[in-house]
Write a protein that binds this DNA or RNA. Structure first.
Lengths: 144, 144
DNA sequence: CTAAGTGCAAAATGTTTGCATACTT
DNA sequence: AAGTATGCAAACATTTTGCACTTAG
C-alpha cells in the first residue's frame, strides 16, 4: 500500500486500518465490520474515526466505496496496490463478488463517454452489475 | 403500466404514484421527491406510504432501486414500457440526472465484458457515475 | 509550535415498525 | 366481513458535525 496511505501523520489508527485492509484485500466490508474487528482485537477505535479514515481513503482512490439497495450501510473494498480510481468494477448479482476491470478497454470506455456523451466518468463510484463466470454456469441448471 | 401495477386494491395513493412514474419515466427520483411532488399537488401522502409503495414496486421489478455512495437516500427509476434493459445508465454525481447510453458502443461494452471477463452484464442494475456535461463546466469555476 | 487526528456527545438523515384506523373488494 | 392499505408516532441504523483534547512532525 506504501506511500499513498500514510499521507500525513502516521497514527496507530491508520496502521490498524492498513493491516485490516491488507487482510481484506478483494473483499468488501462495512465501517462497522472494521470497528468490530478492531474491538475484538482490543485496538478499539471510535466509529467516527473509522468513518473518517475510510472516507478519506475512498477519496484518495485507495478504497472503493459503494452502496447496494438492499443494505443500509456503505461498503468499502480495498483492491490491492493498484488504485481503484481508474477502472470500473463489476459486481456479480449472485455471489456479490467484485471484479476489477483492469484492462486496456477501460480507457476506451472512458474516452467514449467523454467524447460522445460529454460525461466525465468517476470510476470510484461506478458499478456494473451482472453475473460472473462461475455463477453463470451454476445458474444454467438452477434456472426455471 | 397496466396490469402489474394494480396487484391488489386500487387506491388513490397508487394512482397518484402511477401518474408520477409515467411523468418521470427514464428519470430517477427519491422517495422524498415523490413525497414533495404530491404535497405540492395537494395529494399529500404519508412518507411511510411512499416508501411502502415504491419498495413494493421495486420488488415486483417494475421500478429499479439503487443507491449511490455520495447520497444518503435511495433512488428509484421507472423505465417505462420499453425497459432500460439493454443500455447502461450514467448518473451525474452533481445534479443527479440520469443519462441513457443508447448508442452503438453499448454493444461493444457488453461483448467485451462477456468475452474478456466472462461477465454477463445486467443493464438494469448498472450505473456509471461521474459528471455530466453541464455540471463539468459549472464546477470549473467553483473549484478551489 | 502547528497541523492533523481523535473521541465524545449530539444532531441529522433516511428508513422501518407497531398499531389503530380507514378503505376496497 | 376479510383483507389491504394508510397515517402517525416512535424506533432504528447509519453517518455527520462541533468542539475540546491529543498526538505526530
Amino acid at each position: 500500500m506504501g506511500n499513498d496511505m500514510d499521507r500525513k501523520y502516521k497514527t496507530r489508527s491508520k496502521q490498524s486500518i492498513e493491516t485490516y485492509l491488507k487482510m481484506q484485500t478483494g473483499r468488501s466490508f462495512t465501517a462497522r465490520d472494521l470497528y468490530n474487528y478492531l474491538e475484538e482485537k482490543q485496538e478499539t477505535m471510535n466509529l467516527t474515526t473509522v468513518y473518517r479514515n475510510l472516507d478519506k481513503l475512498a477519496d484518495e482512490g485507495i478504497l472503493m466505496k459503494y452502496k447496494n439497495p438492499e443494505e443500509g450501510s456503505a461498503r468499502y473494498q480495498y483492491g490491492g496496490e493498484s488504485s481503484c480510481k481508474d477502472h470500473i468494477h463489476m459486481q456479480c448479482n449472485k455471489c456479490g463478488k467484485i471484479y476489477h476491470m483492469e484492462c486496456h478497454f477501460m480507457k476506451e470506455i472512458a474516452e467514449h463517454l467523454e467524447e460522445h456523451h460529454g460525461f466525465k466518468l468517476d470510476c470510484s463510484g461506478s458499478m456494473l452489475n451482472g453475473l460472473c463466470d462461475k455463477c453463470q454456469t451454476k445458474s444454467i441448471k438452477a434456472n426455471e
